[in-house]
Amino acid sequence: MIQIEYILIISAIMMFAGVFGFLTRRSTLAILLSVELMLNATDLNFAVFNRMLYPDGYEGYFFALFSIAISAAESAIAIAIMINIYRMIKNIQVGELEKMKW
């Protein structure tokens, strides 16, 4: 059986990779993928802490499933917004989005 500490270390690495990607990338698609990576790290934490605190309960798993559903909806909306941005300015770089304010 894998120890819980190892899974939490993997989750922390995923979270830091997502934060780093969010802060350094210039493409909106790469930023979306970084946000998804951060959300997956939190889902992993929900499952791990559920296993650690309530071994026979399912609360953490339900929170994780709810979070996955929200992530899917967020991705669909974000991709629709990116498609509209691309249609308007033919670029999805974050620096070019300044034009959309006016």
Rank of each mutant, 00 (worst) to 15 (best):
M1N: 07
I2N: 03
I2C: 05
Q3Y: 06
Q3I: 11
I4V: 09
I4K: 04
Y6F: 12
I7L: 13
S11G: 09
S11M: 04
S11N: 08
A12D: 06
M14V: 05
M15V: 02
M15T: 07
M15P: 02
M15C: 11
F16E: 03
A17T: 08
A17D: 01
G18F: 01
V19L: 15
V19C: 09
G21I: 02
F22Q: 07
T24E: 07
R25S: 14
R25Q: 14
R25C: 14
R26V: 13
R26Q: 10
R26Y: 07
R26C: 09
R26L: 11
S27V: 10
L29D: 06
I31Q: 00
L32D: 01
L33E: 01
L33D: 00
L33P: 00
L33F: 09
S34Q: 09
S34K: 05
E36H: 08
E36P: 00
M38E: 01
M38F: 07
L39W: 02
L39Y: 01
L39R: 01
L39V: 07
A41G: 10
T42Q: 05
T42A: 15
T42G: 07
D43N: 06
L44N: 01
L44W: 02
L44I: 13
N45Y: 04
F46Q: 00
F46A: 03
V48P: 00
N50L: 06
N50S: 13
R51M: 07
P55W: 04
D56K: 12
D56S: 12
G57Q: 06
G57W: 06
Y58D: 02
Y58Q: 04
E59W: 11
E59R: 10
E59V: 14
G60V: 00
F62V: 14
A64L: 09
L65R: 02
S67Q: 09
S67L: 11
S67Y: 01
A69F: 14
I70R: 03
I70V: 15
S71K: 12
S71C: 15
A72P: 03
A73C: 11
S75R: 05
A76W: 07
I77R: 07
I77W: 09
I79L: 15
A80P: 01
A80H: 08
I81F: 15
I81G: 10
I83Q: 12
N84L: 15
N84R: 15
I85G: 00
Y86E: 10
Y86K: 08
R87L: 15
M88A: 15
I89H: 02
I89D: 05
N91Q: 10
I92M: 14
I92Y: 06
E96H: 09
E98K: 10
E98R: 06
K99P: 01
M100N: 03
W102Q: 11
